[in-house]
Design a binder for these strands. Structure first.
Length: 478
DNA sequence: CATTTAGATACC
DNA sequence: GGTATCTAA
């Protein structure tokens, strides 16, 4: 697993003066200093946690630098981090099969590259090992500070290693090379966890941040850290808590005592077997060859008390979300020649009198038509459809256009079923045209071609179509 | 008053 | 297509 960290994107390329400073990235800051989305290693040392608000972080570490996530269209815009991730992926993909795991993390299968390297040059005869590779942290090595690089060098050269460990050593060398290449081409530093399988690499990846600021102080061994089940991939959430609370398991070692049957009994056949295996270091998970996301989305959540009570505000936010989504779709089309086919809208409603009553609307989908104006129009229609069902199912009556304190607390638009335009299609316009012949209703035939041209026009040339507010069946009032 | 945003997946 | 849930930065 190879990852770049949001804070370093900002630090190294956008605001170099932050280098080496305890830094954190927050989204928004008007309420308690904003929510932290990432914390630099330096800030971790002061006890700054991601669960804190900006103000709390300042209490713990007064000199902390709070960097704000860019706000566009009234919402946090993570594009620069997503794009930074893409830059890195394109470099990593040269060396092996890549799977984009999150906005800034990638799994990279280096098996073939490592095998090839080993076949060419036996490690023992490797003359020069790059400084970068000597910075590696090897979990089986005792890191007591004595000649770290010497120890690493010895480990990498070891002739008594089995084939798998030699592959691992090659992996470390290749990753060192890649990290330098990434730095050269993008100015980003990245971290990597390298193991025999996917699950292990993510443990190591998390272990790395720990190592970088605690191990040197000798507080806990890296083995002990890596052993904590909560640090393992997929165990950072409810499943991990359940292991701890229901079975009393805190470390992977403690998980070993349970039979496969016992684990299956409690967690189901699949999860049970999966747990039994990972406790033994067995992970059959393949690195998927997926460089690009399967969906794009834009979501806005507002705190309960600020719930949207007027259809006009819902419309406003829907427009902002659709604008952002349309931008993603446009980039995807331009850069990857991919087209999304489904638009989905999710909404969540909240009743102020009862903090427990967060209810999702039925989500609604429709064919996705390109052009932000069309997307806005369709999204609003989907919202209306969801709202009608929602009001019906909750027996909320319109008492003079008043809805008893109900308001919208979350809106999201998602584009999915994203497929590559078949290669050989001579023009994108032609492709759009051809697609529509098959699945467009006849009433849209007249303006089809012009409408589909919209996403390809330079941004800023589109115009809002008039929204027919008077035709809306529902209206929220304060 | 209050994590927010993003994305994947399993199941019907 | 739609729902619900999970994970994680």
């Amino acid at each position: 697993l190879i990852g770049i960290c949001f804070v370093y994107v900002v630090e190294q390329r956008e605001q170099p003066h932050l280098r080496g400073q305890p830094t954190t990235v927050v989204q928004y800051n008007s309420w308690k200093g904003g929510g932290l989305i990432v914390v630099s290693y330096e800030a971790c040392k002061y006890g700054v946690k991601r669960s804190m608000r900006g103000d709390e972080a300042k209490q713990v570490c007064p000199q902390i630098q709070l960097v704000q996530v860019l706000v566009a269209r009234g919402k946090a815009d993570l594009s620069i981090y997503r794009n930074a991730g893409s830059e890195v992926v394109s470099i990593l993909a040269r060396k092996g099969r890549c799977e984009r795991a999150s906005i800034d993390e990638v799994y990279l299968d280096l098996t073939d590259a490592a095998e090839a390297m080993l076949a060419e040059t036996p490690l023992e005869s490797l003359e020069k090992i790059d400084e970068e590779a000597l910075k590696s942290h090897i979990l089986s090595l005792n890191e007591d500070g004595s000649d770290h690089k010497g120890n690493v060098k010895e480990w990498l050269h070891r002739s008594d290693a089995d084939h798998h460990d030699k592959l691992l050593a090659c992996g470390a060398l290749i990753v060192a090379e890649l990290r330098m290449q990434v730095l050269k081409e993008t100015e980003f530093t990245c971290s990597a966890g390298i193991t025999h399988n996917k699950v292990g690499s993510s443990v190591q990846f998390r272990c790395l941040s720990f190592i970088l600021h605690h191990l040197m102080e000798g507080k806990l061994s890296s083995f002990a850290y890596a052993g904590q089940t909560s640090k393992w991939k997929q165990l950072g959430g409810k499943l991990g808590s359940s292991l701890q609370i229901d079975l009393g398991v805190n470390t992977v070692g403690e998980l070993l005592q349970f039979s496969e049957e016992k684990l299956q009994e409690r967690y189901g056949v699949n999860t049970g077997t999966w747990l039994w295996n990972i406790a033994r270091g067995i992970s059959g998970e393949e690195v998927e060859g997926r460089l690009l996301p399967n969906s794009h989305g834009s979501r806005k959540t507002v705190p309960g008390p600020r719930a949207l009570k007027k259809i006009a505000s819902v419309e406003h936010w829907l427009n902002e979300l659709c604008e952002e989504l349309s931008e993603y779709l446009h980039s995807d089309l331009e850069q990857n020649k991919r087209i999304a086919h489904t638009l989905t809208l999710h909404a969540r409603a909240f009743k102020s009198s009862d903090s427990e009553s967060q209810k999702n609307f039925p989500s609604k989908s429709c064919p996705l038509r390109y052009g932000s104006t069309k997307i806005k129009e369709d999204a609003l229609n989907l919202f209306q459809a969801g709202l009608c069902e929602f009001l019906g199912s909750h027996r909320i009556k319109a008492q003079g256009s008043h809805y008893n304190g109900w308001g919208i607390t979350s809106l999201s638009v998602t584009a999915s079923k994203i497929v590559a335009i078949p290669s050989g299609t001579c023009s994108i316009m032609k492709y759009f045209h051809g697609q529509d012949q098959s699945n467009c209703s006849s009433k849209q035939a007249n303006d089809r071609f012009v409408a589909e041209a919209a996403p390809l026009s330079p941004s800023g040339t589109e115009r809002y179509s008039e929204l027919h507010t008077t035709e809306l069946p529902i209206e929220f009032r304060d």
